[in-house]
Structures are given as structure tokens and as C-alpha cells.
């Protein structure tokens, strides 16, 4: 379903990497500033949908590389896995765990199950929206 518009196509081409990068940025800063897994995932999904409209289904699938259903499954697994460490430490399910590292160049980095969970949410949102959108667009053809 390509809409043969040069402007749209060029925009889709250049905007895609920017938007994807922006979505990761939104995801990572989400804990402190507006953003997070839901918003990041929606931005990324919207970026791919934009690309889909500017090019066609096949290139959209190609640029995505993986089947959106796999993203969905991986996201669910990450989200559930992030809940487990607490159980092994004898705490309530889903109790957040934080680990701090000091890495040269980057400085102090905080890793947490919360971040893993948010990445899971991010992937589930991308996966769901794209599963719906790509298949609908395909059915259209």
C-alpha cells in the first residue's frame, strides 16, 4: 500500500532511524522524565507504521528484521523474568532490585529489574501494535 509521494517516502526514510533512536531515548529516561516503556514503544511502533505507509509492507517487514510476534513474546518473557529475582531473594514477587556499577567513561550506571520490566513493556507495545497494523495492512493487499 505505498502512497507514491516523494515527500512522504523521503521523510519516512530519514525519520525512521531518528524516531527509533528517540523511542529508545524516551524508554531509558522514562524513569526520571516523561517517557517510559509505553510511550517509547508507541513512538517506535508509530515510526514503523509511518515507514510502512511511505514504502510498502515488504520493506517495513525487512526494516523490522524480526516478526513483531517475536518482539511481543520476548517482551512478555522479559517482563515476567524481571519479577523473579525478588522471589529468589525471599522478597515479595516483583520487588525491585537495583545494582549500581561504575563504568569508566560513562560514569555511574544504575541497572535494575525495573528497567528490564520497562524494556519488556516497550517490546510488548511495539510487538502488539505492529502485529495488528502489519497484518491488517497485509490483509488489505
Amino acid at each position: 500500500m505505498s502512497m507514491h509521494s516523494l515527500i512522504l517516502r523521503t521523510a519516512g526514510h530519514f525519520l525512521l532511524p531518528l524516531l527509533l533512536l528517540f523511542s529508545v531515548f524516551l524508554l531509558l529516561r522514562g524513569h526520571d522524565e516523561p517517557g517510559g516503556g509505553f510511550i517509547g514503544g508507541l513512538v517506535a511502533a508509530a515510526a514503523i507504521v509511518l515507514y510502512l505507509f511511505s514504502m510498502d509492507i515488504r520493506s517495513a517487514r525487512k526494516v523490522l528484521r524480526v516478526d513483531p510476534r517475536d518482539l511481543l513474546g520476548a517482551g512478555m518473557v522479559l517482563a515476567v523474568v524481571s519479577a523473579l529475582p525478588a522471589a529468589f531473594l525471599g522478597q515479595a514477587f516483583f520487588t525491585a532490585q537495583w545494582w549500581e556499577f561504575t563504568v569508566p567513561v560513562f560514569g555511574e550506571i544504575k541497572l535494575s529489574t525495573v528497567l528490564i520490566f520497562d524494556i519488556g513493556v516497550y517490546l510488548v507495545v511495539i510487538g502488539s501494535v505492529l502485529t495488528i497494523m502489519l497484518n491488517l495492512a497485509e490483509a488489505e493487499d
Binding site: F38, L42, V125, S128, V129, I132, L136
Partner: peptide
């Protein structure tokens, strides 16, 4: 509300299809 919006989209897509 935030999650409701996203779920609302999923449910709407389901209903529409």
C-alpha cells in the same frame, strides 16, 4: 489512564477486526 489508553487501542483493534 495511561495504560487504559494503550489497552483501549488493543481492544478497539480487536473489535474492529
Amino acid at each position: 489512564v495511561l495504560t487504559a489508553i494503550v489497552i483501549g487501542f488493543g481492544v478497539l483493534a480487536f473489535a474492529v477486526v
